[in-house]
Design a binder for these strands. Structure first.
Lengths: 340, 340
DNA sequence: TTGTACGCGTTATCAC
DNA sequence: GTGATAACGCGTACAA
């Protein structure tokens, strides 16, 4: 591929002049500039970013690591980040960690070797993360997304998961539910799920209701009805459940319906995240909507400010309760009908 | 960040020796190597990929462009590509085009400036694409995904959309359907949808059934029932519809149910793509499953072979019909009940 | 086995 | 306005 020197030769100028014709066009005489540009065109010259990066010590690249792209939450957030970053002249190197700590480390190491200008990470557990501990010793601009801003020492973009979990619970209580359970994927892997559960417990307690132990599913994004059956058929038999993410909720609704349960009549189901699809299902999914596009945008803007040497302390972004047909009033039970 | 020279100084060797300790460890005496590695450790030296790239004229980076990450099809494929690429030592620069031709051009240009070793693209319309035409004049390794291998001049990874469209139609015909319509997003934007429609037409004709004009929805991934109502209430009133992608099908099912239609009793609905979620809905989605993971893997492997100078001509990957509860036998109509 | 020296393509600092 | 030249960090042919 043609380089600047060949362009300069063809244009009959020095390499410095050719370079200036691109980077500081006003410093070069119009006629000369024309010659250079024409020569570049003829040779189909394309500036070499790698050389620019080496020279300028800045890659204009951002390293992104998400747990998985199979979950629309991350995919939709990534979409927003990509658009925002490109609008600011940055490119994204994208990786997936599968919530695996050793992969997290390798990925970040590789990105640092690539000399990304900054990192946007979603780690499994921010308060207990080998990668983050390592990163604390270096000082690359680094930002967390979705991970609650705990002791990690890094700024974080996302909603207030505790408040959101509480809001979801309040919503169900307002609808008249008193027996509410919570369903999650493999617990230990996600700090968000823990916070949402804490919010649930808090809201239950605030209404003098006793929170139930978390019901854990073996997979993050696929419900297993058998895990919930003991709870449903037990003495507690909840009238509503909250899932820690939408995919879990949607697949749970499917499993319930297939097993002959009516949603929401037999059981109300809430999701969490607010993926786009939820609106279009029947019943539509009642959920806590995270502003994914705003999160993606804020992540890039915040990171860019960090790259510029600032030390932002971003506030949590507002979540919104999206009502939906998957939640209704609880069926009248004998005990309730006795006490009007 | 420490560079090789400072490592070499600390180790008391020349820069060349330090470099060799990393790139060709066997060329350096064990003791010397130890010294270098220890010095590198002390200085927390991290090899500079940018310099390596400039020097080696190879970035080990692949440029990926997909229309959107809001559609799980692309997100799930990207997930597979990322894992496969990283396993081969490659990184992914990921971009989204929104099916916008001018963005497609800018994105590819930027990636070429970045000197990616190859490109994996999914364009709006491969047979009529400004980007692809431009790329024909250059010779970067470039591979299409999902786009049918037409006159574009580039190898393509994906299923045989025509055969798949026909298979979907056959499946419905086997179930006893004779009045089948097809629903798509904005037609002109997607060459895949056109091929699938062609397959539908072919299969209909093969059974002496008259194909219907395509029903177009205003959005790719969100059904608008109003667009289908004329068809449903018209003289043809299909007993089954095929959607050109799963999100369209899923949201259509939701809209139908909300409007009081039973699926599949009043109308059978087939999807296309086979996103993971479809299995877990109720009714589960009957669909043509594209092997997304295999497509992602094959894309990377094929591109790497192209980077190595080969000129592969990848065969279409096999699609699979995934049966599901969203398709059933057609309701008995008067005309049918008369002719046993 | 190790050191010297050059080049990858660019930008920036000097002179002219 | 323009041209020569030195970095940026690394790999490697060649010499020692």
């Amino acid at each position: 591929m043609a380089d600047l020197l060949s362009v300069a030769k063809l244009a009959g100028v020095s390499r410095a002049t050719a370079a200036r014709a691109f980077s500081n066009p006003e410093l070069v005489r119009a006629l000369t500039r024309e010659k250079v540009l024409k020569a570049a065109e003829q040779l189909s010259f394309r500036p070499n970013k790698v050389a620019q990066q080496l020279r300028s010590q800045s890659t204009q690249m951002i390293g992104v690591m998400v747990p998985s792209l199979d979950n629309p939450v991350f995919a939709e957030q990534l979409q927003a980040m990509e658009v925002t970053a490109r609008a600011s002249g940055y490119s994204l190197i994208v990786t997936t960690s599968e919530y695996d700590a050793s992969q997290e480390s390798e990925i970040v190491e590789e990105m640092l070797r690539q000399r990304v200008d900054g990192l946007v990470l979603t780690v499994a557990d921010a308060d207990n993360s080998a990668v983050l501990n390592k990163l604390l010793y270096e000082h690359p601009p680094c930002l967390l997304v979705y991970n609650p801003p705990g002791q990690s020492g890094f700024p974080s973009i996302g909603v207030d998961n505790l408040a959101a979990g509480a809001d979801a619970t309040h919503h169900l209580i307002e609808q008249g539910h008193t027996r509410i359970s919570m369903v999650a994927g493999p617990l230990l892997q996600s700090d968000r799920a823990r916070q949402r559960y804490a919010g649930y417990c808090q809201a239950m307690a605030a209404h003098d209701l006793i929170p139930r132990p978390l019901v854990e599913m073996p997979r993050h994004t696929q419900a297993n009805l058998a895990c919930l059956t003991p709870e449903l058929e037990g003495e507690y038999h909840p009238s509503a459940v909250i899932c820690t993410n939408d995919l879990l909720a949607i697949s749970l609704i499917g499993e319930l319906q297939r097993a002959g349960f009516a949603v929401p009549n037999d059981l109300s189901v809430m999701g969490f995240d607010g993926i786009a699809l939820g609106r279009h299902l029947y019943p539509s999914l009642c959920t806590i909507e995270q502003p994914r596009a705003a999160i993606g945008q804020a992540a890039i803007h915040t990171l860019l400010s960090m790259i510029n040497g600032e030390m932002p302390n971003p506030a949590p972004l507002p979540h919104v309760l999206r009502s939906g047909e998957s939640v209704g009033a609880p069926a009248i039970t004998p005990s309730l009908s006795i006490t009007p």
